[in-house]
Amino acid sequence: MMTDAATTPATAARKAWMGLLAKASPQRLQELWAAYDVDPAFTWLRPPEIGGVMVRGRMGGTGAPFNLGEMTVTRCALSLEDGTVGHGYVQGRDKVHAETAAKIDALMQGEAADAIEAAVLTPLRTEDSQARMDRAAKAAATKVDFFTLARGED
């Protein structure tokens, strides 16, 4: 059930960066964040906690949902001194990963957005799409090219 908010451009952008941060390698994110070298003051609204999310599939890929099993997720929420709230929802059990994601989520809603986009998000996005392309290129090399041998009586 998507709310109307999900369709606005601002929401679409936020969905995109939160998804990117959730899937990022914690080590790589930390490197880029450390290089950006800004650590905003904040207060916890919800300190990082590790939990599970039940992942669902659909019967036959398109039918009714069923429970496939859980995945580990770490989440937190914080607020910057100006009151901006940032949420971190990241895959795995790394609390620092969730904290950094929440800080970036908060900062991305303010004036630092362009700088963080350039210093952190763009490199993550580029590397992620490069990694995907590398895998897709290896898969493509294993695609079967069928050919039919000439057959017949003559």
């Binding site: 969905k15 959730a22 992942v55 990241v90 895959q91």
Partner: peptide, 25 residues
């Protein structure tokens, strides 16, 4: 595949991760 979840405090769904799956039909 990407895994998406509705986040009540946000009011919309985000990708919270991805997982490798095997599907057979």
């Amino acid at each position: 595949v990407a895994v998406e979840m509705e986040i009540p405090e946000l009011g919309f769904a985000i990708e919270i991760g991805e997982m490798e799956l095997t599907e057979c039909e």
